[in-house]
C-alpha cells in the first residue's frame, strides 16, 4: 500500500495540523524547526501544555467522529477505542497539571476541519496523520519541559503515541521496521 496521503513534507504537514489545532506561536517554532530552544520556565511548560492539549483535543475529535460514523472495520475498532481512551487520558493528565499550577487549559474547539471523513480509508489515514502530528510534536517540545514530574509523564505519553502510529502504519501496510 502507498504511503499515507501526505503530499507535503512531513514537517509542513505536522505544522499545518498544529496550526489547525490551535498550537501557539512559540511552540510552532519548535515544531517547524525555526526555534531550537525555549527558556526553561513555567511559561514554557504552560506553552508546551497548551500545545499538547490542542493536539489531544483534535485527536479525540477525530477518533470520536470516525467511531460515531462507524468507519473502523470491526477488527480495528478495539484499537481505535483504546487509542482514543489514551488520548483522553493524556488530555486529562495535562489538564490536571495545568490546573494544579494555576493555569487555564484551552478548551476543545466545537469542530475541526479535518477534510473528508466518509470511508474506512479516510478514517485510517486521518488517524495516522493525527498520530504522526502527535509523535512529532511531542518529540519537538518535550525536551523543553522544565519540571521533572511533567517530563516523566510526557515521556510516557510519547510512548503511547508511538504505539498508535506504529499500529496504524501496520494496518495500512506501511513499513514499521
Amino acid at each position: 500500500m502507498a504511503e499515507p496521503r501526505v503530499v507535503v513534507p512531513r514537517r509542513d504537514f505536522v505544522y499545518r495540523l498544529a496550526v489547525a489545532a490551535g498550537v501557539s506561536a512559540p511552540v510552532l517554532g519548535l515544531i517547524d524547526g525555526t526555534v531550537s530552544a525555549m527558556p526553561k520556565s513555567e511559561e514554557t511548560d504552560f506553552a508546551v501544555l497548551e500545545a499538547s492539549l490542542a493536539l489531544e483535543h483534535e485527536a479525540i475529535w477525530t477518533y470520536d467522529a470516525a467511531l460515531a460514523r462507524n468507519l473502523f472495520p470491526a477488527g480495528l475498532r478495539p484499537y481505535a477505542e483504546e487509542f482514543v481512551g489514551d488520548h483522553k487520558g493524556h488530555r486529562d493528565t495535562q489538564i490536571a497539571v495545568m490546573e494544579e499550577r494555576g493555569g487555564r487549559p484551552p478548551d476543545a474547539y466545537a469542530t475541526y476541519d479535518i477534510g473528508r471523513l466518509a470511508s474506512q480509508e479516510d478514517a485510517l489515514h486521518k488517524c495516522l496523520e493525527i498520530e504522526i502530528a502527535a509523535q512529532d510534536a511531542y518529540l519537538a517540545v518535550n525536551s523543553q519541559i522544565r519540571t521533572k514530574d511533567y517530563l516523566l509523564s510526557a515521556a510516557f505519553i510519547l510512548v503511547d503515541e508511538v504505539r498508535h502510529l506504529t499500529v496504524w502504519r501496520r494496518v495500512l501496510g506501511l513499513k514499521i521496521y
Binding site: T93, D149, I157, D160
Partner: peptide, 14 residues
C-alpha cells in the same frame, strides 16, 4: 501500567 503513569495526577505519580 502506562495508563497509570500517564493518567495519575502528577502529585500522585511521583
Amino acid at each position: 501500567l502506562l495508563k497509570t503513569v500517564a493518567l495519575a495526577p502528577l502529585a500522585l505519580a511521583l
